[in-house]
């Protein structure tokens, strides 16, 4: 069983990202379970999404304490509590413009980073980062298939479906993985200055 935890803040689209991942795995014929917990159901408060993927029916009804992967939409949420159940083989994917090695003082995990904000801006999505993060996820975990995932993103985006699918493909291409050389084309992101928030995207 693959067990994932996505940590974000209300309004960042972390919950929808979890639903998109669940849909992609479901359409691949996998059993999935995805749910989110949140306190205030409002922008800015932490939202935790838990996803299980398996080839057999899933019976557990509890939080994931030892995830195989943690996806963190906001580096400020990388708390000891969040990382507590992680193992050395746990993938920790962070939405950040920093290098993966810069997070290594937090523990011995397989860090990966994506400057999802820059990818979103490049794809005319303003501050909507979830579609880019999903692409990076598919790369570091090795599933779901990226073309298939991009198709699901295109299907479920309420608007700017091509831009969101493009961000997913870019996220897949541009994710930086600890211990591996930086991907080609990364320098193009460096020139993108975060601008003001605009509407659109998959959130």
């Amino acid at each position: 069983m693959l067990q994932l935890r996505i940590q974000g803040r209300g309004g960042q689209g972390a919950q929808l990202a979890g639903e998109i991942l669940a849909t992609a795995y479901f359409r691949e014929g996998k059993y999935v379970q995805a749910y989110s917990t949140y306190g205030g159901a409002r922008r800015g408060t932490p939202v935790s999404t838990f996803i299980r993927v398996d080839s057999a029916p899933i019976r557990e009804r509890c939080d994931i304490e030892e995830p195989d992967a943690i996806v963190c939409f906001d580096p400020s949420l990388l708390s000891p509590a969040l990382l507590g159940g992680a193992r050395p083989d746990t993938v920790v994917l962070v939405n950040s413009n920093r290098a993966p090695s810069s997070f290594c003082d937090l523990g011995d995990y397989r860090f990966a980073t994506l400057d999802a904000l820059a990818v979103a801006q490049k794809n005319d999505l303003g501050r909507i980062v979830n579609s880019a993060v999903l692409g990076a996820f598919a790369r570091v975990i090795g599933s779901p298939g990226i073309e298939h995932l991009a198709n699901v993103v295109r299907d479920v985006s309420p608007r700017k479906s091509e831009e969101n699918a493009g961000a997913t493909m870019d996220g897949y291409r541009l994710v930086r993985i600890l211990g591996k050389p930086d991907p080609e084309g990364l320098e193009a992101l460096a020139g993108i200055t975060p601008g003001s928030a605009t509407e659109g995207g998959a959130a």
Partner: peptide
């Protein structure tokens, strides 16, 4: 919560009875 559903029957899951659909649904 956004509606994310499909009516497709899939490999790896039990056969459906005629007219049944399998969907990805919250409880």
């Amino acid at each position: 919560m956004t509606t994310l559903t499909t009516g497709a029957s899939q490999a790896g899951m039990p056969e459906l009875l005629p007219g049944d659909v399998r969907m990805l649904l919250t409880g």
